[in-house]
């Protein structure tokens, strides 16, 4: 792993919707856009499947970063799934902000045609998390 070479390679867990961001990642790949391989994507059918517990669990188990990404509001494959998801994500992030845990959690809207945006977002989040350093919970007994 990167760490052995001296640098810190963050592990990032991404919860992405099947119709937009996951397809956007596919497009980034088929368009040969380069981006850091730090994110592990978990495909959901819709961001409305996202349960904030997923993010809590990822962080507590030592993920250095977590992000949620899906269709732009108003463009959900299931018409309104991401509107509900947005409310849940807002509640989750409000709680995490109060507890000072929010800086490792991100959320984006990336559509299936935004392969370039996906690649750039992965670059940015990897850099941001790299600057934060390893998640202190990784080595704790939790």
């Amino acid at each position: 792993m990167g760490e052995e070479k001296g640098g810190f390679e963050p592990k990032i867990v991404g919860f992405t919707c099947n119709w937009c961001t996951y397809a956007g990642a596919d497009l980034a790949g088929t368009s040969r856009k380069k981006y850091p391989p730090n994110a592990r994507l978990i495909r959901m059918m819709c961001t409305a499947r996202f349960d904030p517990m997923f993010a809590f669990k990822a962080l507590l188990n030592g993920a250095d970063g977590v992000f949620i990404s899906g269709c732009h509001p108003g463009e959900c494959h299931y018409i309104k799934g991401n509107f509900y998801a947005r409310r849940r994500i807002a509640a989750m992030r409000t709680i995490l902000k109060q507890l000072g845990l929010d800086d490792r959690v991100k959320s984006y809207w990336i559509s299936a045609s935004e392969g370039v945006k996906f690649a750039n977002t992965m670059k940015n989040i990897t850099e941001e998390i790299r600057e934060l350093g390893p998640n202190p919970m990784r080595d704790k007994i939790l």
Partner: peptide, 15 residues
Amino acid sequence: LPFTTYEEDELEECL
């Protein structure tokens, strides 16, 4: 209940 409803244009500042 807040989680059973939504508005089309809202909350972006929280994200």
